[in-house]
Amino acid sequence: MHHAAYVFDAYGTLFDVHAAVRRHAGEIGPDGQLLSEIWRAKQLEYSWVRTLMGSYADFWQLTEQALDFALRKVPSADPALRTKLLEAYWRLDCYPEVPAVLKALKASGAKLAILSNGSPEMLAAAVKSAALDQILDDVFSVDQVKRFKTDPSVYDMVVTNWRLYPGAVSFQSSNRWDVAGATKFGFRTVWINRTNQPDEYRDFPPGLILPSLEGLLAGV
């Protein structure tokens, strides 16, 4: 089914959040995957806690704080790698199918955007690094509303800016909690379940579950 607008979460959906650690896996040692998982989990936890507290700090600050925690939690990882890991986060790899899928959706006449927790600077760097800057119509950062997903004000940025009803928007995310928030808001949601995670938030089900973004082209 073709939609007027396709909106994508950035981290985990378009960009591989574990690419930063993988790039320096040889220096980190055997606990690299553990370090990356703790880093990601804490980054998200901090976003939820700060939104609930009403104490916003941008996603880059949370990314730094989360890495500091992960490095303390995984003592086998050399803390001297902190700078390298943070630098790598600015140039995360996009998943292999991303450029072709976005180009095909764009060619079909749809509007395309990112809607992300990321700071404007982080997102601009990631988009440019993956050469997606010529394909996307907009990049929406939560920095505009100073609240993180799944706060409804985040999803509202898209419909307010584009003057669309929520049902006209197909929203894609690899994060099941993000899909739940977007479903509740009224978007048509697609869960990109890249790592075959079990379902949750069953009272807010996705409209579609796909293993990658390639399945979006079936209706184009």
Rank of each mutant, 00 (worst) to 15 (best):
L62V: 01
Q134G: 13
R72W: 02
V74P: 07
A25K: 13
R194H: 02
L132T: 01
D78S: 09
L105T: 07
H2F: 11
Q172T: 10
I38F: 09
S174K: 05
A10E: 04
P211S: 03
L136I: 13
P166R: 04
G215N: 03
K106H: 14
I38S: 07
L123N: 08
T63V: 10
M1W: 00
K42H: 14
E27K: 13
R82E: 03
W60Y: 07
A168D: 14
I209N: 11
K73W: 12
D133R: 08
G215R: 01
Q61N: 11
V190L: 09
I209E: 15
I28F: 08
R72K: 11
S76L: 11
V101F: 03
L115E: 01
L35H: 08
L92W: 03
W177C: 05
G219W: 01
D9S: 05
V127I: 12
R72Q: 13
L44M: 08
I209V: 15
L105E: 10
L213W: 02
E64G: 01
A168F: 04
V21N: 04
Q65N: 07
V127M: 03
L62W: 00
V139H: 00
A19F: 12
L164M: 11
S116F: 05
Y201W: 15
D138G: 08
W60H: 06
Y11P: 06
A80R: 08
V127W: 00
V101M: 07
G167K: 09
W191Q: 09
F204V: 12
R188N: 15
I38K: 08
D58I: 01
I192Q: 03
D78I: 05
V49E: 06
W39F: 09
A113R: 04
K111N: 12
R202Y: 14
N193Y: 06
A4Y: 01
G186A: 03
W90N: 12
A110G: 11
K42E: 15
A168I: 01
H24Q: 12
F59N: 00
S47W: 02
D9T: 07
W90R: 14
D151R: 00
E214H: 06
V101P: 04
G186C: 07
D143G: 05
E64S: 02
T160I: 10
E97M: 04
A88Y: 03
Y11F: 14
A182I: 05
P166D: 05
Y46E: 03
D58C: 02
A4N: 12
M1I: 04
P211T: 02
Q61T: 12
D199S: 15
P198N: 11
A125P: 10
V49G: 00
L14E: 05
A19P: 10
L136W: 12
V154P: 08
N193K: 05
D156R: 15
F15C: 09
L85Q: 00
N196C: 14
P99M: 09
